Computed example of a mutant assay.
Amino acid sequence: METSIEGVAEDAGGGAQPAQPPVAAGPAAVADRAGVVAAPEAAPVPMATPPDAPVPVAVPPASLSPSRAGDFMQCPLLYRFRVIDRLPEKPSEAATRGTLVHAVLERLFDAPAAERTAPRAKALIPGQWDRLKETRPEVGELFADDPDGERLARWLTDAERLVERWFTLEDPSRLEPAERELFVEAELDSGLRLRGIIDRVDVAPTGEVRIVDYKTGKAPRPEYAEGALFQMKFYALVVWRLKKVVPRRLQLVYLGSGDVLTYDPVVADLERVERKLLALWDAIRLATETGDWRPRPTKLCGWCDHQAHCPEFGGTPPPYPLPVRPAGSG
């Protein structure tokens, strides 16, 4: 649901891994020196590209989201493959389950408060799964080799467990979200455009704003908590720049482990995030102009769909589709 942050303003009254060091000096090192720490997120469930579909025209990146910032910090070459080359990716069971659970938790708030129960939420799963297959037919391929439906049944049971666990962490009968799946976008003074989708925005009677994000994985270890909060501080910065309202609380709800991570930001926090994002964007622009997108091997490479195109695995990236600035031109 794309909607405006205006509604928030009116009501308000005004286990991830840490980023690894670069393997060589390059555009990514610019961001590292600025201290940007972005926990890599689960890849979105992409739309499959039909064999006869026209190849999309490559354009330089024009905006930054938390997930794409995480991609660049995880591996600049991964960012290129997703944003510039737009290579297709296969859906994964974990990411698709996360999409399904998010849809169920969003739709549950359509019901009156007294009817927001665990049984009702679980009853929404089959319908939301059918809807997901209609809007993203490629996810049906996940269980194409499951003729008896046993693996699908286990997968849906896992989704039910995640939904049930949510009720041990929050009480939806006492919540009336101001927004769900809220698309936000803001342009900084520098011209950098930030955008993203917030799972839930709560507004207290006193006008205080809480930003909530659901995670279907497990909570990170304490030493990685800062990286996990990067996405939430990103959203808080966008809301602050849009409406001059600093969210009172940022809340990550980890359904995989049953943990809730909270953080109360202040203006100084958001100013630091903005500086880090500007440094990150400078690094992305440099890589875009020079075509220097270096891979950064980590253990996350084992889950990457693009090994066939990655030099670390003996592959060759596709021809760079954008103009490259000549060496020594600035």
Rank of each mutant, 00 (worst) to 15 (best):
D213Y: 00
E141C: 00
G217M: 01
A114C: 02
R136F: 08
I198A: 06
A111K: 10
A113K: 11
S173A: 15
G196S: 06
G207H: 09
A121D: 02
G127V: 09
P177Y: 09
D130E: 15
V209D: 02
A219S: 12
A178F: 01
E185G: 05
F183S: 12
Q128V: 11
D199F: 07
G149M: 11
E187A: 14
G196K: 04
T216M: 05
E223G: 01
L169Q: 04
L142G: 06
W155G: 04
G149I: 11
P177A: 10
T168V: 06
K215I: 01
R174Q: 14
E176M: 11
E181P: 01
P137K: 12
F183G: 07
P119T: 08
K218W: 01
G140W: 06
F143V: 09
A153C: 01
E176R: 14
I198H: 03
W166R: 14
F143H: 13
D171V: 06
G149V: 12
L182F: 08
E164K: 07
R165F: 04
T135K: 15
L194S: 09
R116N: 07
A153G: 06
L132K: 05
L175Y: 02
W166Q: 14
V201M: 10
P137H: 11
P126L: 09
E170C: 03
R120C: 00
L156P: 04
E115T: 07
D146L: 09
S173T: 15
R116Q: 08
P222W: 00
R174G: 12
D145P: 00
V139Y: 05
I198Q: 04
I125Y: 04
E141K: 15
R136C: 06
D148R: 14
A111R: 13
A144V: 13
W129M: 10
D171F: 03
A118G: 02
F167H: 06
P205V: 11
A113V: 01
D158K: 14
P112L: 03
V163Q: 01
A144L: 12
D145A: 15
E160V: 02
A159M: 04
E187P: 00
E208R: 14
G196P: 08
V203Q: 02
L175N: 06
F183R: 13
I125Q: 06
L162G: 01
E160S: 13
E138C: 12
L188S: 03
P177R: 08
D199G: 07
I125H: 03
K215H: 07
S190V: 10
V209Q: 05
E134Y: 05
D146E: 09
G191D: 08
A114N: 00
A111E: 12
D110F: 04
A204W: 04
L192K: 06
P222E: 11
W166T: 07
L156F: 03
T117V: 04
R151H: 13
P112R: 03
R136T: 15
A123L: 03
A204Y: 03
E150D: 14
E160P: 00
A118M: 10
A123P: 02
L182E: 06
L142D: 11
W166G: 13
F143K: 10
A118K: 07
V212S: 05
P119M: 08
D171P: 01
P147H: 10
A204C: 04
A204Q: 13
R154W: 07
E141H: 12
P222G: 02
S190F: 08
I211L: 15
D189G: 15
L132P: 05
E187S: 13
